[in-house]
Nucleic acid binder design. Structure first.
Lengths: 405, 405
DNA sequence: CCTTCGTGCTCAAACGTTAGAGCAGTCGAC
DNA sequence: GTCGACTGCTCTAACGTTTGAGCACGAAGG
């Protein structure tokens, strides 16, 4: 049985010699798990166009796998296939006895309706798509999407609908990947989880006149159906927590790229909270790109330019972690010397020492709501409101200081 | 514009009052991000059966969204639709001039082939599925799947094939979710990422005579095509590292559930390494379930029963983290008092302090290889080998002790 | 001049499904 | 006794695609 097993990297004598990789002990940005993937010995699948693929398949094409269709059920029961179809649709025009017979035959033959036939007839597929445009895998691999997917999956399962996911291989294929899914009617609607507010793809999708639900806030697309989180409120809450609960006054914000709506909203929440706190606060801003390394760089900038910083609020946990590394390397203690807060709450914040105070993004709930809205759209029920905003919730851990009182 | 915005949890006066949740400062198992999701104000989508949904859609059913089909292109060019089809397939029977005209018309009309029509005609859909059977979301939400998905997505994109994901809503729906995807021909093949070796669903899938690639090692299914990682070698390598590089002799293993192939393999690698190390080692075993809490419990058991433990090797990073918490709470230092190692390398191991020495699981590469194999199967090319095994690679960080020169 | 061949298309059928029209038989009402 | 309505089905068309068969035409070969 082991004779047909092929071990890559196996030495000639049959012993397995695992490669050892030594991690950067500084724990900095050269993160092993996001590093280049182990290159497969076999070259990656090369793109094949429809024509040549068909040519390859044609010669030795095995008999199409035998499927049981309506016709088979009809033959078994001794009625027409339309009658079977109607029976399965529980039509009142079919006698109970016939329905029973049909159900029995369906079960014994193992009939499952062919989705292509159904989709063709119905004009739409029984599936929805989650599209993540404009993404290298750096975006798609994020835990955020995993949680989103869990939510969408749950809703799709409940609705008895299949789920397709569609990402863009690269910028040049930009449009293709997701537009085709919709235009080809492979999915009857889509949930779009994008990023940049300048993403023209998003506008395209919305214009496509197909059911689309956006995740996030899209002020420039007032008529698009969207579901988001109240990011401004979340950022306000955590900033106010720093100011009011911990009495901090000199606070830096490390924002994400400011063509990114969440980055804008979190920054706005930050400034608004300072303005409304009633306290004389000083603040500064450093812009990152949501990556750990950019957070570290931003922290460096903050520490070098603002004297006596008391707290840093980063627009996501990854940058907060980067900042933590910078603080650590300068011998600054968190939270004793500087308080730290993040945003997202997808694992990092809990695992890091000290645990990061952060704002929880309910990605799973977002996914579930988005799917529910999409189903309304697909079924022609116009949703009552176009924009749904879920509440933010802050999670207090240790990085912002010991709990007063 | 903000008038149609509905804020959940918004107070009557319009101010947003975010809820504050206080995290368990012990940092133990009550992990916020895996906790119950924020319950949506609106009740979750209730299951709707096919019949009643159709009834809802029927009355006000809007005109089916206008799509441009082959017929439209044919009309525009002034030829038959078969000619258009042949032109697009680059048939030699069509003149270059006509092909050009067709391509121009396709472009100007924005024709995209309807996937249902194509799938119906071809007998199979241009999509593959990733199925995760036997799963509460506890399994599906794991970073492992995210990485797997990234790999599969890349391959699917390169092959110009859509990707469906299919999970089981719950145990009762067990079969339905994935079996339907395949039996209904919604996908032309599937990648199965399962867990338990007793999972009868996996056998069912394999028996279904549809292209299926399993992820992991399935010794009991020798004829199924699978792609896995050499878990035994990985566990051996890390164990030998502890024994040979760090001179540790009293080592405990915290395994996963032993009806789970990776758990079995990692345990086997552990014992085999000890046997082959040439050193007189003492070891013990505690069984967990791959959860952080079970890791903590197992560590408790180990520390209470085995005297003078020098190292703990946990079968995954989550349990290693649980063990770390237990050690920390007993005032034991890692690695000074006890060395620690994990397995998986999906983020936790890098973020925790001290960084965990672990074995890297190349989930993305697994996904990519699995997809490549699946495409071979779907296209009728029988792959040369049924089992592919990727090499393991250990990642040395700080939890196993300082690097001996 | 007739046949053969090649070219460049058209025609028709088929994939599996659903739904509207139609139809044979029964039954109740007038 | 005739009419209409109802019951319980069958027939047929249609969704959009691909493909094998067929056909009209011109050129080449006998």
């Amino acid at each position: 049985m082991s004779s047909d097993v092929h071990r890559q990297g196996e030495a000639a004598d049959g012993t397995v010699k695992p490669r050892v990789r030594r991690a950067d002990p500084s724990g900095a940005a050269a993160s092993p798990e996001t590093g280049a993937l182990v290159p497969p010995a076999r070259s990656p699948v090369e793109p094949t166009d429809e024509a040549s693929r068909a040519a390859v398949t044609a010669p030795g094409a095995p008999a199409r796998p035998q499927t049981v269709t309506l016709k088979d059920v009809a033959r078994a029961v001794g009625i027409s296939q339309s009658a079977v179809s109607m029976a399965l649709a529980d039509s009142s025009r079919i006698s109970p006895a016939t329905k029973d017979a049909v159900r029995a035959a369906v079960k014994s033959l193992g009939y499952v309706p062919n989705s292509a036939g159904r989709a063709l007839r119905a004009g739409r597929a029984a599936s929805i798509a989650v599209v993540v445009p404009n993404t290298g895998q750096h975006m798609f691999g994020h835990p955020y999407f995993m949680h989103l997917l869990v939510g969408v999956t749950a809703a799709a399962n409940a609705h008895d609908v299949a789920l397709m996911i569609s990402t863009n291989p690269d910028e040049t294929h930009g449009v293709a990947a997701y537009e085709r899914v919709l235009r080809s009617r492979a999915a009857s609607g889509a949930i779009v989880a994008s990023a940049s507010i300048n993403d023209t793809n998003v506008n395209r999708m919305v214009d496509a006149a197909l059911p689309v639900v956006l995740i996030g806030r899209y002020p420039q697309l007032p008529h698009a159906v969207s579901v988001g989180v109240d990011e401004v409120a979340g950022a306000m809450a955590i900033t106010l927590h720093l100011v009011q609960q911990h009495g901090l006054r000199r606070i830096a914000h490390i924002s994400g790229p400011l063509d990114h709506q969440p980055a804008i909203d979190r920054y706005e929440g930050f400034t608004r909270a300072l303005a409304e706190s009633g306290q004389p606060c000083t603040h500064t801003l450093a812009v990152g790109d949501f990556s750990e390394e950019s957070g570290r760089a931003a922290a460096r900038q903050v520490l070098d330019t603002m004297s006596d910083v008391q707290a840093i609020f980063a627009a996501n946990d990854e940058m907060a972690y980067g900042a933590l590394l910078e603080l650590r390397s300068r011998g600054l203690r968190v939270p004793e010397d500087i308080a730290l807060a993040g945003y997202d709450d997808f694992g990092i914040s809990r695992l890091v020492t000290p645990g990061l105070t952060t704002v929880h993004v309910p990605a799973e709930a977002l996914g579930q709501r988005a799917a529910a809205l999409l189903f309304d759209l697909v079924e022609g029920t116009t949703p009552v409101r176009t924009h749904t905003v879920l509440p933010a919730e802050i999670v207090v851990r240790d990085s912002c200081g010991t709990h007063p009182a």
